[in-house]
Measured scan of single mutants.
Amino acid sequence: KTELCRTFSESGRCRYGAKCQFAHG
């Protein structure tokens, strides 16, 4: 995971959680 998850960085939450293909910091 190298690319940051935009949804997580903007809203602080992501519906994919740990399964998200993007990094959550």
Rank of each mutant, 00 (worst) to 15 (best):
K1D: 09
K1M: 10
K1V: 05
K1W: 02
K1E: 14
K1G: 06
T2A: 10
T2Y: 10
T2W: 00
E3H: 12
E3T: 06
L4K: 03
L4T: 05
L4D: 11
C5A: 04
C5H: 04
C5N: 07
R6F: 05
R6N: 08
R6H: 05
R6D: 13
R6E: 15
R6C: 07
T7A: 12
T7Q: 11
T7M: 15
T7P: 01
T7Y: 11
F8K: 15
F8I: 03
F8E: 14
F8S: 11
F8M: 13
F8A: 11
S9D: 13
S9A: 06
S9W: 05
S9K: 08
S9E: 09
S9I: 11
S9M: 13
S9P: 05
E10Q: 10
E10C: 00
E10S: 13
S11D: 15
S11A: 07
G12N: 00
G12F: 02
G12S: 05
G12H: 06
G12I: 01
G12K: 09
R13S: 15
R13A: 15
R13Y: 14
R13G: 13
R13E: 15
R13V: 13
C14W: 00
C14G: 05
C14F: 01
C14T: 07
C14S: 06
C14D: 07
C14E: 07
R15W: 07
R15P: 15
R15H: 14
R15I: 14
R15N: 09
Y16C: 09
G17L: 00
G17D: 01
G17N: 00
A18K: 10
A18M: 08
A18W: 11
A18Q: 06
A18T: 04
A18G: 09
K19I: 01
K19A: 04
K19Q: 13
C20T: 05
C20Y: 07
C20I: 03
C20P: 14
C20Q: 01
C20H: 01
C20K: 05
Q21K: 11
Q21G: 05
Q21D: 10
Q21S: 07
Q21Y: 06
Q21V: 03
F22S: 11
F22N: 13
F22D: 12
F22K: 15
A23R: 12
A23E: 13
A23K: 12
A23W: 06
A23D: 11
A23V: 08
A23Q: 15
A23S: 14
H24R: 01
H24L: 01
H24D: 06
H24M: 01
H24P: 02
G25S: 10
G25I: 07
G25D: 14
G25H: 07
